[in-house]
Simulated assay, not measured.
Amino acid sequence: MEDKQNNLMVGALMLLAGGIIGAGIALMYAPQSGEKTRKEMGRYAKKARRKGEDALEAVEDFTEQVAEMAESVGDRASEILDRGKDMAYGAKKSVLKALEDGEARLVKQRSRLAKLIG
Rank of each mutant, 00 (worst) to 15 (best):
A30E: 05
K115P: 03
E64S: 15
L113Y: 04
K47H: 09
A91R: 04
M69R: 06
D3Q: 09
L113P: 00
A98P: 03
G24Q: 09
S94Y: 11
G74R: 05
G74Q: 02
Q32P: 06
A98I: 04
L56F: 03
D54L: 03
I20L: 06
L13Y: 15
V107P: 00
R76T: 07
L116A: 07
I25Q: 02
K46P: 01
G18T: 13
M87I: 08
A48M: 08
K97F: 06
K92R: 11
E57I: 05
R112F: 05
L96N: 08
A30N: 07
A26D: 07
K36G: 08
L15K: 14
M69P: 01
T37S: 14
M9W: 10
L106I: 06
R110H: 10
L13E: 09
A45L: 11
L56Q: 03
F62E: 15
Q5I: 14
R105S: 13
D3R: 12
G11W: 11
A12S: 13
I80L: 02
E2V: 09
L15Q: 15
A104Y: 02
I117D: 07
R83H: 01
G90H: 03
L106P: 00
G74T: 02
I20T: 12
T37H: 00
R43G: 05
K46I: 09
A55P: 00
A17G: 13
L81E: 00
G90S: 10
A114K: 12
K4H: 09
Y89M: 13
G34V: 15
V95P: 02
V95A: 08
L99S: 03
S78G: 04
Y29P: 09
M9P: 01
K46L: 06
G19C: 04
A91D: 08
A88M: 09
E103H: 07
A58H: 04
G118L: 02
A12E: 15
V10Q: 06
A26S: 10
K92D: 02
G18H: 12
K108I: 08
K92F: 08
L8G: 12
R43N: 07
K85R: 01
A91S: 13
